[in-house]
């Protein structure tokens, strides 16, 4: 465990806590894409199946369980909470996520380390995570009224994967045999998807204004 990886994980954790805080404190999920949240839940379920058959560390297990629990908690609020669900931007959040899930699954069947059920699902989760933010980015571009918590949420999520890239570089040079092309290329694509967002996020932050994405 290095500092880049740990900071990345903490950003990931905080991003989720920011959303939960927003939902619980304001009783509103305005600006949050349920599609993205559901994709992340699917990502976590497919990736953390190994909770059932392998153990890495207490840290690892606690984080995995936390990610799973919070993902489903957010979905529960957005779908079923009497107050919160009325604030969901149903008409705007129309991204057809089948167009993300299907290609990622086919790609996982074709490009993987080992053709076994858990390995293919794990690979699928890596590919899907890379693009899972897209419905959220599209929603933000549509609504044009992005509150600070939502902006910070996306920034933390983008920062998490960017720090993982630094962590991979670090590990490549400090650990023998540390090579993982599937994760690296997916992670690079995932981070690149945020580039545009970060450009406008930085501008808004510097000028102390509310984030606005061009239509």
């Amino acid at each position: 465990m290095n500092l880049f990886r740990l900071t990345g994980d903490m950003m990931h954790l905080f991003s989720i806590l920011v959303i939960l805080l927003k939902i619980r404190a304001t009783k509103s999920c305005r600006g949050i894409s349920l599609k993205t949240q559901e994709l992340y839940a699917l990502v976590f379920v497919c990736r953390y199946l190994d909770l059932l058959y392998s153990f890495v560390s207490v840290y690892n297990s606690v984080m995995k369980v936390t990610f799973l629990a919070t993902a489903f908690s957010i979905i529960r609020y957005m779908r079923y909470d009497k107050v919160v669900r009325q604030t969901y931007d149903r008409e705007q959040d129309t991204f057809r996520y089948g167009f993300l899930v299907a290609p990622c699954f086919v790609l996982a069947l074709l490009i993987n380390h080992k053709f076994t059920l858990t390995e293919v699902l794990w690979t699928f989760s890596i590919y899907l995570e890379a693009v899972a933010i897209l419905p959220q980015l599209v929603l933000m571009q549509r609504t044009q009224n992005i509150d600070n918590l939502t902006a910070h949420y996306v920034a933390l999520l983008g920062g998490y994967r960017a720090l993982y890239i630094v962590n991979w570089v670090y590990r490549y040079f400090t650990e023998r045999h540390y090579k993982q092309w599937i994760v690296w290329i997916s992670g690079l694509i995932q981070t690149a998807i945020y580039a545009d967002f970060f450009y406008f996020y930085t501008i808004a932050w510097k000028s102390n204004k509310r984030l606005q994405l061009p239509a």
């Binding site: 994980d9 190994d50 392998s54 560390s57 995995k64 990610f67 993982y164 650990e175 993982q180």
Partner: peptide, 10 residues
Amino acid sequence: LSKSGRKDEL
């Protein structure tokens, strides 16, 4: 895990 420790990441 022996496989380059990739699954110790989240």
